[in-house]
Design a protein around this nucleic acid. Structure first.
Length: 326
DNA sequence: AGTATTGCCCGCCACG
DNA sequence: GGCGTGGCGGGCAATA
């Protein structure tokens, strides 16, 4: 099915399917990331965000005293490019039918937390991999045996259907969607504005991507990044990285920015500081040694960048961390 | 802390 | 003419 989004056609229409008792936390996370923040260079919003329901407003939410008033009917799903489904788990049959119809028409459907049960009830998760809140993972496996439930990840991207795990993971997933729609740079801007990490630290696979990997040159960049990550102590000039990616420095820098949202040098710098953090936390190595091991050359240089990115000095960072740990 | 030098990066343009 | 690439140079951040 062809995605309805056309390059350059803005804003992308996001419709949240709500019901009495809708969970405000997840709904407002989606609203912040899609509805409020993303803007292009001219300050124009990149998403249009509206609510619709099978029930006429006002709809009570899960928070006492707060209800939803500006809610349209199910027909609003007809123009949706993306449908957002927050908890609770249950929706009336006509909502399920409308959801199914929107999906068949080509809309992307994304669920937040236990909203995945609504997708499952509509049959959208049959034979697919999905995730939901860990506390409900067993219930989902029992009720929908053809769905493979992976409770260990933040979200599962199956292309036209994306599911996210509990509460805060919704933010990671929504950010992932922004990245897919408008690129890493816009996503990073949103993350920075909301003061959340652009991608959770840790490095291990925290989301499952069922989409076929792109086969173009981005794989070469990815491989180079991985290599650079493991060799942070060595000099990592743009020229060197470009050579490893079999591209000219200029082209490499361009592709790099498209893929990561930053420049090569800034990315390397960020990784080096992350490594310094780890070394400061887990070893007693002198600051000079830490600086050498993460490729920053000298303690003075490490201090400079550490201060700028972390707003503390390396020794202070180590002290507070060790005080907490010990 | 101040200075010199290196290297980055981004706009611009030519080329295929 | 559109599109992606590669090279150049000015301005400036990063390093020595």
């Amino acid at each position: 099915v062809q995605r309805l989004t056309v390059q350059g056609q803005r804003p992308h229409k996001v419709v949240a399917l709500v019901t009495p008792g809708t969970s405000l936390f997840e709904l407002t996370v989606a609203w912040e990331i899609f509805g409020r923040v993303p803007k292009d260079d001219l300050g124009v919003t990149l998403y249009q965000f509206i609510l619709c329901s099978a029930t006429r407003p006002p709809l009570p939410s899960d928070v006492p005293g707060i209800s939803l008033t500006d809610v349209r009917g199910l027909s609003a799903l007809r123009g949706a490019e993306t449908v957002v489904v927050p908890p609770p788990k249950l929706q009336p049959p006509e909502a399920l039918a409308a959801l199914r119809q929107a999906h068949q028409r080509g809309a992307r459907v994304i669920s937040l937390c236990t909203g995945a049960f609504v997708l499952a009830a509509a049959g959208l998760l049959d034979g697919r991999t999905a995730t939901t809140h860990w506390a409900s993972a067993d219930a989902m496996t029992e009720n929908y045996p053809t769905t493979k439930v992976d409770a260990s990840v933040l979200y599962v991207d199956d292309g036209d259907v994306i599911t996210s795990a509990g509460s805060a993971a919704c933010a990671d997933m929504c950010l992932h969607v922004v990245r897919k729609d408008y690129g890493a740079e816009v996503a990073n801007q949103v993350a920075r504005y909301l003061v959340m990490p652009p991608h959770r630290s840790g490095g291990q696979a925290q989301f499952v991507d069922m989409q076929p990997k792109r086969i173009d040159g981005d794989d070469l960049i990815a491989a180079t990044l991985e290599w650079a990550q493991r060799n942070l102590d060595k000099p990592l000039s743009v020229e060197l990285l470009a050579k490893r990616s079999a591209a000219s420095p200029r082209t490499f820098a361009r592709r790099f920015r498209e893929a990561t949202g930053t420049t090569p040098h800034q990315w390397v710098l960020g990784r080096r500081i992350m490594l310094a953090q780890r070394l400061l936390e887990t070893t007693d190595a002198p600051v000079d040694d830490v600086a050498m091991q993460c490729g920053l050359g000298s303690a003075a240089n490490l201090r400079l960048h550490f201060q700028r990115l972390m707003s503390t000095s390396p020794t202070d960072y180590r002290r507070t961390f060790q005080a907490k740990a010990g």
